[in-house]
Design a protein around this nucleic acid. Structure first.
Lengths: 223, 223
DNA sequence: CCCTCTTCCGTGCACTGTACGGAAAACCGT
DNA sequence: ACGGTTTTCCGTACAGTGCACGGAAGAGGG
């Protein structure tokens, strides 16, 4: 009777490792969100999982691996819904990209230095190519257009995040903010005259730059 | 007589510190060029200068300082000669940017994550703004155009460097190269069909993407 | 000759990634 | 029920990091 299924704790006996690659990646994203890429360490990651540091290495070869996996994981968050006109599809995809990169500001530090070959990255890339191909582009023009758009988005959001990180720095508060503002006003007149002051400005500028590039692309469409 | 100027060794007595911020920055650039941003450490930098590690801290507050200074230093290498037509001036400046970023591949890892506020960075920025202002742009359109162009260049060269670093990796040689090639062919059909295979391809693609953006800008010029 | 100031740097601390090898647990064949 | 194999976990250790601290060595001025 005690060995009946209802009393046995099979759950414990089934091969159920406490750790898994999925759990590690999930915790890594959370840690990166909370502490940034500098505050990210294998020890801290293990602590967050209540595991020994070296246990992680059963599932990944190195810290680099974890970063690659975490990056591809959040790239998977980008929504790629189709819209009617190709231009709206593109704008939507890139706006989504921007939002994900703002949710995970550490992405910029990684995308610039490593090839994006994870499954999610490849999937977004394919979708993006096909959206532009549907517009009528092909060959080198297609490749160039994809490049122009993706590099613009990445660079824009990286700069945007850096800006917020600089201004929102919780030192001396108004003190620092004031100094930065004066500094920019003195040193980069044209730049500061149209400087960003709130989210709305960033939104508008983002879409404006996007429109410029899209105009250039449209001019190159056959027919 | 022995105390005559010709016998005294005044050069030795003149305050002439062995180290200086300039020497440190110069050595830092050399070290970064040789070892990349991962191989860069304060100890290695000091060794290169035949100095004790802590001596560096007499001239800089932190490693971050050194990186900021090194980055602004190489930004200063960008040549910003004027050309007749605004479009050629822009193309020239950005081509120069690309070349400098290829000479110092570690730049990409830094530009994405820190504000570029050094004197050289500000100077290039101003020149770039004025080149586009001369074309007739102003206000938010000017800011957006500058953003679209600079982010494109940074992103493009970062990707380009990553590509070369991946392909040129001196492991297993042809083995790895073959695998990467197959991988791309399988996973990103459109991408690999127009993949880059040599410097010439990168040059052409770079200019092509640039032209697309410039077309978009030109369409927006008043008059 | 002392006093101060600049320059240099050895030592030490808290922290990093990860190689290695061992312990414990779960599975399998008998 | 038991020995052996494989999987999971992780403590220890090592070489490396950035940099705080405090002291030494020298130069300049009184």
């Amino acid at each position: 009777m005690p060995e009946s299924i209802w009393f046995r704790d099979d759950a414990r006996r089934v091969r159920r490792p406490r750790l898994s690659r999925e759990r590690i990646v999930e915790a890594a994203v959370a840690l990166l969100d909370a502490e940034g890429v500098n505050g990210f360490s294998m020890r801290a990651l293990a602590a967050r999982l209540r595991a020994g540091t070296m246990s992680l290495y059963e599932y990944v070869k190195s810290k680099e691996d974890v970063l690659d996996l975490a990056l591809d994981e959040v790239i998977g968050e980008i929504d790629t819904e189709e819209h009617g006109a190709w231009r709206q599809t593109i704008v939507h995809q890139l706006t989504q990209s921007r939002q994900v990169m703002r949710r995970h500001p550490w992405m910029a530090a990684l995308t610039g230095t490593r090839p994006l070959l994870g499954p999610n990255a490849l999937a977004r890339s394919r979708l993006f190519y096909s959206a532009l191909a549907a517009a009528g582009l092909s060959g080198p023009a297609l490749t160039a257009a994809v490049g122009a758009l993706t590099y613009y988005v990445n660079g824009y959001v990286a700069a945007e995040n850096t800006w917020w990180a600089t201004v929102r720095t919780p030192d001396a508060d108004a003190e620092i903010r004031e100094r930065v503002a004066r500094f920019l006003e003195d040193n980069a007149t044209e730049l500061s005259r149209h400087a960003h002051v709130d989210d709305g400005d960033f939104d508008r500028h983002f879409l404006l730059g996007l429109d410029i590039i899209l105009d250039g692309i449209e001019a190159r469409l056959p027919g």
